[in-house]
């Protein structure tokens, strides 16, 4: 019994309640979901084992492939646009002494709002009756006369834009935190050497915030897999699957089409992908990468 009161176990005791909750809320449902991907369960009633039939069907499903492509596109967009803007703004903010708090708050504000609020604002702005559509039409910008959320060619980018608009303020805050930790002597030395602002950013700031920067890329890659709320509220994956993403596809199959087995197969693939990404980052860390 003595080993139970060992000092090294005390931390474990405190963690047990969290582990317990995670086990029930995430662990068991995940395991069940993994099991359900081999069945044709409708969400109610009998569960029939169908082997890998769901996966075979999935690999032949043109809309699932389209959803994967959109997720990849979404990841690329988020790895570039908000990251670049946030890096630039965070760096510029470090040079602002007065009123910096206002900018930080203004940039971060959309992140504090619920996704449904953000979406409704933008949906309303581009509403064909009450929104800016009529105005754009009157000044000859026909492309914005219709809502970009309901136009096949633009729906995915429009949803990504709104999500990016809410997200980039978060990146600004974490980059800014990293930038404030950079030793000021380095900048002073660079000033003596006559370095330009861009050179200081390229050769001092960026290398010094690398762990935070890589971390931000990792969370973007991981968070881009289950992206759901903005797409669901703004476009519902439409029109014509033009903004369909994997999580929305999973939701439709599980809760609208009564295809829980099929949806579980989608979920399993998402799970494998996330494990793969986390594994790659772990491997790189083991290989000595500073991430």
């Amino acid at each position: 019994m003595n080993f139970l009161s060992k000092k090294s176990y005390i931390a474990w005791y405190f963690v047990i309640p969290v582990v317990f909750i995670h086990l029930f809320v995430i662990g068991i449902p995940s395991i069940l979901s993994l099991a359900l991907c081999l069945t044709d369960w409708s969400g109610l009633g009998k569960i029939n084992y169908v082997g890998f039939e769901n996966f075979i069907e999935l690999f032949d499903d043109r809309y699932f492939k389209k959803a994967i492509f959109h997720n990849i596109l979404w990841t690329i967009i988020f790895l570039t646009v908000p990251v670049c803007i946030a890096l630039m703004c965070a760096y510029l903010l470090t040079g602002i002494k007065r009123g910096q708090m206002f900018y930080r708050l203004a940039f971060f504000f959309p992140y504090m709002l619920a996704s449904v609020v953000n979406c409704q604002i933008w949906k309303y702005l581009f509403h064909p009756i009450h929104g800016l559509g009529g105005f754009f039409e009157s000044i000859g910008i026909e492309a914005l006369a219709s809502s970009p959320f309901t136009t096949k060619e633009t729906s995915l980018y429009a949803a990504a834009f709104v999500d990016g608009w809410h997200f980039w303020g978060f990146l600004v805050v974490i980059y800014l935190t990293g930038m404030y930790q950079v030793d000021n002597h380095l900048y002073e030395a660079a000033d003596i050497e006559g370095a330009s602002k861009f050179q200081k950013f390229r050769y001092i700031t960026l290398p010094m915030i690398r762990p935070i920067f890589i971390f931000s890329l990792m969370i973007i890659i991981i968070w881009s897999v289950p992206v759901f709320d903005y797409v669901y509220i703004l476009t519902g994956g439409g029109p014509a699957y033009s903004s369909e993403v994997v999580a929305n596809y999973l939701y439709t199959h599980a809760f609208v089409r009564f295809n829980v087995g099929y949806a579980s197969a989608v979920g399993t693939l998402m799970f494998i992908y996330v494990i793969f990404i986390v594994g790659i980052f772990g491997l790189l860390r083991k290989l000595g990468w500073e991430i």
Binding site: F126, H127, P128, I129, S146, S147, F149, T150, T151, G238, P239
Partner: peptide, 10 residues
């Protein structure tokens, strides 16, 4: 509603 896009939007 004038167009397919408007039909989707209202």
């Amino acid at each position: 509603s004038g167009s397919l896009e408007n039909y989707y939007a209202i």
